[in-house]
Amino acid sequence: MTTDNFLPPLHANFRYRIDHVGNEKRPVLVVDNFLHQAEALVGFAVKYGQFRPGVDFYPGIQSKVPEFYAAALATHLRDIISDCFNLSPEQIEYSQSIYSMVMTPPEHLSVPQARPHVDSIKSTKLAAVHYLCTPDKGGTSLYRHKATGFERLDETRMPLYSDFLAKEEQDPVWQKRYICGTNDYYEEIAYYEANFNRLIIYSGDVLHSASIAPNFNFTANPLAGRLTLTSFIYCK
């Protein structure tokens, strides 16, 4: 798994399902047992990882992934993704992936890092999380904003949503803690556990957050920390 031209096969027990979450019934693709010998992806991160501070508000460190990973997504999942998100296979253009590890202590969080967020306000950008860690490292939750009822955001919803954010961010509830389940402002509408070699894909416009418990163990060791392989999949 360390050569760029190698395409790992699917796991022998590969399986998937499509959930429709919340009042808006947004699709989430849940793949269990994605790749054969996924442990080698952890080994790659240990041996070749060059982790640096994350970008775009990511609360941790990130590193490049092997070149073959994009091909694995495209080869193994293109038709399933198309079915899940009502696309034609030709609409899926390309993907970008990166290793990610949550490392920012709660006391150093900014408000945007502490609350649920979207990756895009356009449904043509899909987000994927491939868990290379165990369930105790925390999974991913999808949310509904209580005041507006929004479970996803677009250009028409942003003005109203932004008005509420400006007021709500003054609440000390956002200080020194990661969101982990329902709070005063957001209702958790789905939770996906970080099972090893599980991959979830959802539209980038849905409100979501990593679920980080108060007793989370922050470590930069890929063998022991919250190692994920996060991807963005771009569609026409």
Results as ranks from 00 to 15, higher is better:
Tyr191His: 13
Tyr192Ile: 02
Asp205Cys: 09
Ile201His: 04
Gly204Thr: 01
Ser211Tyr: 02
Tyr186Leu: 07
Leu199Tyr: 00
Asp171Asn: 14
Arg157Pro: 03
Ile201Leu: 08
Lys167Phe: 14
Trp174Glu: 06
Glu168Cys: 08
Lys176Pro: 08
Pro159Trp: 13
Thr156Leu: 13
Asp171Phe: 11
Ile179Arg: 00
Pro159Asp: 10
Ala190Ile: 06
Asp163Pro: 00
Trp174Tyr: 14
Asp184Tyr: 12
Tyr161Asp: 10
Tyr202Ser: 01
Phe164Glu: 07
Ile201Trp: 03
Cys180Trp: 04
Tyr202Cys: 00
Tyr178Pro: 04
Tyr186Cys: 06
Ser203Thr: 04
Asp184Trp: 10
Phe164Trp: 14
Gln170His: 15
Asn183Lys: 09
Val206Phe: 07
Ser211Gly: 00
Tyr161Thr: 01
Ile201Met: 09
Ser162Ile: 01
Glu169Val: 15
Ile189Ser: 13
Ala194Glu: 00
Arg177Thr: 12
Tyr192Gln: 09
Ala190Cys: 13
Met158Gly: 00
Phe196Tyr: 10
Ala166Tyr: 06
Gly181Trp: 09
Asp163Gly: 09
Ala194Lys: 00
Tyr186Glu: 07
Ser209Thr: 11
Ile189Phe: 13
Phe196Leu: 06
Thr182Lys: 03
Val206Glu: 02
Lys167Ser: 10
Thr156Tyr: 14
Tyr161His: 12
Lys176Arg: 13
Ile200Thr: 06
Tyr186Gly: 03
Glu168Ser: 05
Glu168Met: 11
Asp163Met: 07
Val173Thr: 11
Met158Tyr: 13
Trp174Gln: 04
Leu199Ile: 06
Ile179Val: 09
Arg177Gln: 15
Ile179Gln: 03
Ser209Arg: 10
Leu165Ile: 14
Arg177Pro: 05
Leu199Asn: 01
Glu169Cys: 15
Met158Asn: 04
Cys180Tyr: 12
Thr156Ile: 11
Tyr186Arg: 01
Tyr202Lys: 01
Glu188Arg: 02
Tyr178Met: 00
Cys180His: 12
Gly181Asp: 10
Gly204Ser: 02
